[in-house]
Design a protein around this nucleic acid. Structure first.
Length: 674
DNA sequence: TGCCCCCCTGTTTTT
DNA sequence: CAGGGGGGCA
């Protein structure tokens, strides 16, 4: 098909034109040719393939500012990004580039955007406006609840666990496949219970429908359904977006790709930005093919490549280019920089064991700080959240403040979820999963009793009159106390802070009993959590904020004692899009990166390689790739390890090796005058 | 029948 | 380190 573009000239007021001319000089001065082209190409579909550190964010930011300066109302621009943080940061910067109005551009994740639209138009699908969003842990609990309801819980031992079930159901939604296909392809060892899994998936779906619940995948698929099945609504919504921009397009899944198409279908002005070499979310249904297929999906699409790197030194790029070239699937970009000088060689650091690795990292960080590098300009990256435990202890010992991103989140910790369950029940008295959770905290109440009570709640007119739920006198007092508390707090005039205070007073004794061994730590967590959420103004907004934009600090969070901005610890996934002066990658071991789960499969192995690539390309000036040659399992039982297979082939002339040795006692003797 | 405690195992990454 | 399963006990 031949496609030409025909530009309809807008009759912009001349004042705006003058402004554009004026600022165009600024754009020409501050952007390179490819970036400028991406910024000023406003009509039709555009794909920007942007290598790591090539000014991707800058390009999007300037484009947003440019569009607004051209006179496009901010309310007609939609910017979809991977995290809400990224969107806010981008819009804030856009406002400083050109026009303060740029800050009013609608931005956020696909999920957050879907949430907004569905609250408004969900009625067309039979959704109430006050549906509850289930985060992953909620979804798992709900699935577990459904499993029990179907009586699949005591059918023997081989039934998948709740998080596996959730993965299956989610994969089916994200890849637009049937649950049977997913199980047969990805979980052949569960083929024998295919039928029960299918039954459960159906029941779960039905349960969500009748209880006004949406999980993450539903947010996307329901929005898709809304746009597909209701042309009038589709026209109105898509008609409102004159410009659609999608960041990190390589991490979109099929549904998101489809949504992009649907949302931009009226005006046809869509820009996708991404890097196929940085696709790291396949486990979530992301398909990096989306970005490769973009030109086919949007005939007439203009492709712009950004290849000049502004972030890293040449020596870092030499290593990262080599790394990514080991991929089975070849990438077409080759990053270069004009930065001078070439910088320090990236270092491969072999530590005798994990403690020494931590000691090295901590010591080197302190040295850098002495040299004037602020702590927050340094990051320690790891494959999974638990890889940093040893280092965290070392950092605490040396009083180095840090924040940790990724890994287990505060809102996923059992005690925080307990606490939130009270709020959820207040928000939605028919939330049986949350009821179940808080009932189980009562002394003497187990699954069976809890089940009886939730069965009663399901049809109860006054669900807070809990004492009517059971004939057994054993629990009546505890149930009455709980019911009265909730009944008192359910009034609309009670403020969120009053609610949290009362719930805390009620819950603390339960927490101490239930998590006796480590309750002080958990109490501290809870306190920390309450400070974080104190800015919310209602239970409803708090809950949906938490589901869609969870407090992204991990549960272990060192409070700062002074004003110094902390060192950053982060999983590689959470480090996406960020950069630091110095980057330490720790535990770069075979079996960790690449993960042992990916070893058997070259597609997954490639994703691990891209992940390593993402980690290393975060570094501006200094890069340390560390691994311990001896690791321990559960604190004893040491065994030898191998460094990541991806690092083995690195040519000797592009990096340097650092062998760690303990300061020999001899030196002390020599330094001391006899 | 239902609850509680101990032991075991293993979750990579996130909206 | 946390959650699930199994066994023991009321």
């Amino acid at each position: 098909m031949n496609v030409k573009t025909f530009v309809i000239r807008s009759e912009a007021p001349s004042a705006a034109l003058a402004l554009v001319k004026l600022s165009l000089e600024k754009y020409q001065r501050e952007l390179n040719a490819a970036q400028l082209e991406a910024v000023t190409t406003t009509q039709g579909p555009v794909l920007v393939v942007a290598g790591a550190g090539t000014g991707k964010t800058k390009t999007l930011t300037y484009r947003a500012a440019y569009l607004v300066a051209m006179g496009v109302p901010a309310s007609e621009i939609l910017l979809l990004t991977f995290t809400r943080r990224a969107a806010q940061e981008m819009l804030r910067r856009a406002a400083t580039v050109g026009d303060a109005r740029a800050a009013d551009i609608a931005g956020g994740t696909f999920h957050a955007y879907a949430n907004r639209v569905l609250r408004q138009h969900g009625a067309a699908l039979g959704l109430g406006p006050n549906f509850t969003v289930l985060d992953q842990a909620d979804a798992e609990d709900t699935i577990d609840y459904c499993r029990t309801a179907l009586g699949l819980h005591d059918k023997g031992t081989r039934f998948p666990r709740k998080f596996v079930l959730n993965d299956m159901i989610s994969a089916a939604a994200n890849k637009q496949q049937s649950i049977e296909e997913v199980v047969l392809q990805g979980y052949p060892h569960f083929e024998h219970c295919l039928e029960d899994i299918g039954k459960l998936a159906k029941f779960y779906s039905h349960y969500k429908q009748t209880n006004n619940l949406l999980d993450y995948d539903d947010l996307l698929t329901q929005l898709q359904r809304l746009l597909l099945e209701h042309p009038a609504i589709h026209r109105r919504i898509a008609g409102g977006w004159r410009y659609v921009m999608v960041d990190e397009y390589q991490d979109t899944n099929l549904v998101q790709a489809e949504l992009t198409k649907l949302l931009s279908s009226v005006h046809g002005n869509v820009m996708a930005v991404g890097d196929d070499a940085q696709s790291i979310y396949a486990f979530r249904g992301a398909n990096y093919r989306n970005i490769l297929d973009f030109p086919q999906a949007y005939p007439g699409c203009k492709i712009i490549k950004l290849e000049e790197n502004y972030r890293s030194t040449q020596r870092i790029l030499d290593v990262t280019n080599f790394i990514i070239n080991q991929a089975q699937e070849k990438f077409s970009k080759h990053l270069y920089t004009r930065r001078e000088p070439a910088g320090e060689f990236p270092a491969l650091v072999t530590a005798p064991d994990e403690n020494m690795q931590s000691a090295f990292v901590a010591q080197r960080i302190l040295e850098l700080r002495e040299e004037g590098v602020p702590l927050h300009e340094i990051a320690v990256l790891m494959r999974n959240g638990r890889n940093s435990f040893d280092l965290e202890i070392e950092l605490q010992r040396r009083k180095i403040p840090f924040v940790k991103y990724g890994g287990q989140k505060l809102v996923e910790a059992a005690h925080i979820r307990d606490f939130l369950s009270y709020l959820k029940v207040l928000h939605n008295p028919k939330d049986l999963v949350s009821w179940n959770r808080i009932l189980l905290l009562l002394e003497g109440v187990g699954p069976r009793t809890a089940r009886g009570v939730t069965d009663w709640i399901k049809d109860a007119e006054e669900p807070y009159s809990l004492e009517r739920a059971t004939a057994s006198r054993k629990y009546v007092l505890a149930l009455r106390e709980l019911g009265e508390l909730l009944g008192r707090l359910a009034r609309p005039e009670i403020s969120l802070s009053n609610i949290t205070e009362a719930v805390l007073a009620y819950y603390l004794p339960l927490l101490r009993r239930h998590y006796f061994e480590d309750h002080p730590r958990r109490e501290a967590d809870l306190e920390n959590f309450l400070t974080i959420i104190s800015s919310s103004d209602s239970v409803e907004s708090l809950l949906s904020e938490l589901a869609l934009d969870p407090v992204d600090q991990a549960a272990t969070y060192e409070r700062l004692e002074n004003d110094e901005k902390p060192l950053v610890l982060s999983t590689i996934h959470s480090a996406k899009g960020l950069e630091w002066h110095a980057v330490f990658l720790i535990n770069a071991l075979d079996g960790i990166i690449p993960s042992s789960y990916a070893l058997g499969n070259s597609t997954e192995l490639d994703e691990e390689l891209r992940l390593l690539y993402v980690a290393l390309t975060r570094a501006q000036n200094l890069l340390y790739m560390c691994y311990p040659s001896l690791a321990s399992r559960r604190g004893y039982d040491y065994y030898l390890t191998n460094p990541s297979r991806f690092l083995k082939e690195l040519p000797g002339e592009i990096y340097e090796r650092l062998l760690l040795v303990e300061e020999p006692a001899v030196n002390l003797a020599l330094n001391e005058p006899a």
